[in-house]
Design a binder for these strands. Structure first.
Lengths: 241, 241, 241, 241
DNA sequence: TATGAATGAGAATTCATTCAT
DNA sequence: TATGAATGAATTCTCATTCAT
């Protein structure tokens, strides 16, 4: 999940105890909100159970009736976030079906949706960002391992379709392209976060206007253009022949 | 330093105490090795002094005669790694001087050198990777702040030269291009690490042959091609016009 | 508090955690006793959490569930001691109200009560003594700052009343008089401690008889006489005119 | 020594090693100065060998060739300070010999000399102050025990002479009077230090004028007057009869 | 189940003193 | 003797997890 703002996995591993699920909605949500807040603010290693129970307003002992340990809450939250993201995309992005599919316009749609989601769920974006940076290898692998099977990489699906329809250079190894798009997308997220911070400084109230902001739109276009056409000044490019 | 495997800074902040520098080479190296090992395996927050002194085989108190705290060793090691990398590149990569400069072939040289360095110093690569992911903002800024002035971003230099010589599309915003190359470089590192792991599984002894390995060479070429020409199947690309 | 054995403040700053206050009386008292013992025996800087938890028979971690650090226990104990002293005096010393007030007899009452209190609470006396000697200025100021607002300096109150009623030489600067009484009081405490030690040597069991001891009573009278009439053999005193 | 700024002991216990005394004057003085500085700034418990060697500019190991431990330096310095004070007084204060002796004017002379000394040797005053506040009982006793035999309490000598010459109320127990004068003197020191601090704030350059400052002279006179004649408004004092 | 107190394993750091050269 | 590195005991503080009610 969250290799970047446009990648995600679908997962449904049930880690909290049954006791947790039996909780009244309000309390359950308080706990979830506190956990989201915690993992948005801190990496897994810096997150603490103490913070979560304090923000959720539940007793220490209760925590252990709902989860085995911090890792389990983490997995649960990562999972939840992934589900929300998938749900959002499924509702928002036109499914890449039918003949009308165009890889590059679909890409732009996906980007826009991604930024929209990030705008509406800044904490989930932060959680994703923290997860990407997670260096605890065994934790990473454990989470990815559990979720990868159900992962649904929109990019990969799109890519294959694009190749199929001849919109993408057929010489390109799809695996490498996927890797590249992933990194490209992460860089995009960084750009987005940097812009957000600037806007927040200058004009906190119209952060929401970011997406319709002309300059930012131009940057999006440039990034997409780079991905599509590369760096080369076309007449001069020679290396890759 | 280490925004990715091809970016680095030159730095010379001296943080260990004089006592440390007075130590016999052998002992000093033992400590440095232990620290490198630690920061290669763990992020700054997960690294522990206990591990370092245990691996270096020095008593608890001695550590504090050499460094003030973990942060100081970290800075020292990051610095050392940066210096080694710069030294390596200066010795290996043909300086981009004179008329003969070609952005794309220079890029390939840089990549090859980067992989070579990573192959010879896998732990330094790991340290760099961990640093990129560092989420402790104040620590990041502190280290970058101390080293940025002396930073030397090869990509940026090259990019400007490439634009100057008309080898790169002049419409591209250099800032975004830098971001783009950064993403590309990160993807490259991931690719490299994945290959390494495969090789290590299959044929641990010829890891060193990776760079001359034909398949890997093809992948490098593909990556460069992606960067240069983009994804589009040229006759069909339309979006960015 | 405790500028000397007859001065004190009233304070009610609550520093321990709620957890501490929830503890069963017996355990709470064990901890309080251990802390009192510690601060009676050692100055703040020499006191150690290790001693307290050992004497209280609680585990290391528990201490930190009750207090944030040594300073907080210290403040709490100083405060407790102050409250006990005030309570004692309020119950024992006739309030200096009404016309019948006589500075000098009130002083004697106060002294007697002070010695009585010290006798019954030798550890609190020791704590007060250690606090007076506290050289850590910021700690002093912090504690005094928190408690001064509620401070009730019996001497000063009495002094002003004595001046008002013409019982004290009107030429005397009240500030200096306060200083003077402070010194006198300190000397008194020293005298008292010395006597206590002697008695303890000779006849440990009748320490309690100290106050009714005739010789000691005479010493008290002498001290008061010194304060009231000074050293001079009256007909000969000349210096201060 | 140093029960207050007018009390002191003479002592000559030689605690440093012979090696120390063999040192060239300059180096020896550097060490002494560093130690004085340290004990003026910190109480014994807070003082550290590290500070001293740093300020003296001597290596760690050397310290232990000159002294066994911190306590020994402390004793040595306390001793040195005492000797300096005695020397100063012997040179400055008219010896209380002959018929012309008057307790009260001698007292004023002593005070003035004491303040003068304090002004010229603020660090020694600070050391004395710190020693008075020393709560480490065994250390106190050890130092006092070693030095008391040779102690020379000017007050006590004077007092006896004053009684002898009928200048002091013969009913007064000399022991109690000594105790009282001691505390009085300490209070005096506090007053002096407070004034010093005020002056330092207002007019740092004329701190030296403090002693000739009229207001301060009046305070001295009031303090002496209180000691001589007591608090009572003479016609009304009744208690002590 | 809910609660919140109990616990102890670690982590960092300090510093006096000893030791080797 | 001079030097400065070596050492480890002591101290504070944190926190996940267990336990008793």
């Amino acid at each position: 999940m969250f290799k970047n703002h446009l990648t995600f996995f679908k997962g449904a591993v049930s880690l909290p105890t049954q006791t947790f699920f039996n909780l009244p909605e309000e309390k359950k949500n308080r706990i979830i909100r506190a956990a989201i807040q915690e993992f948005a603010a801190y990496s897994f290693d810096q997150a603490s159970i103490a913070h979560i129970i304090e923000n959720a307003g539940i007793p220490r002992g209760s925590f252990y009736q709902y989860f085995n340990n911090l890792k389990d809450v983490y997995k649960y939250i990562i999972n939840l976030a992934g589900e929300q993201k998938i749900k959002y995309f499924q509702e928002t992005v036109p499914q890449f079906e039918g003949k009308g599919f165009n890889f590059f316009s679909a890409l732009r749609d996906l980007c826009t949706a991604g930024f929209q989601f990030a705008l509406e769920n800044p904490e989930l974006l932060a959680i994703g960002n923290n997860f990407i940076k997670e260096t605890n290898k065994s934790l990473r692998d454990e989470i990815l391992g559990e979720q990868l099977p159900k992962a649904q990489n929109f990019y990969e699906t799109m890519l294959h379709k694009g190749i199929e329809l001849g919109q993408i250079d057929p010489h390109i190894d799809p695996h490498i392209a996927t890797l590249f798009i992933g990194a490209w997308s992460t860089a995009f997220t960084e750009l987005y976060l940097a812009e957000l911070k600037n806007l927040a400084h200058d004009n906190p109230e119209d952060v929401c206007a970011l997406l319709t902001n002309k300059q930012f739109q131009q940057k999006i276009d440039q990034m997409i253009d780079l991905l599509v056409n590369g760096l080369a000044n076309k007449p001069f490019s020679t290396v890759s022949e």
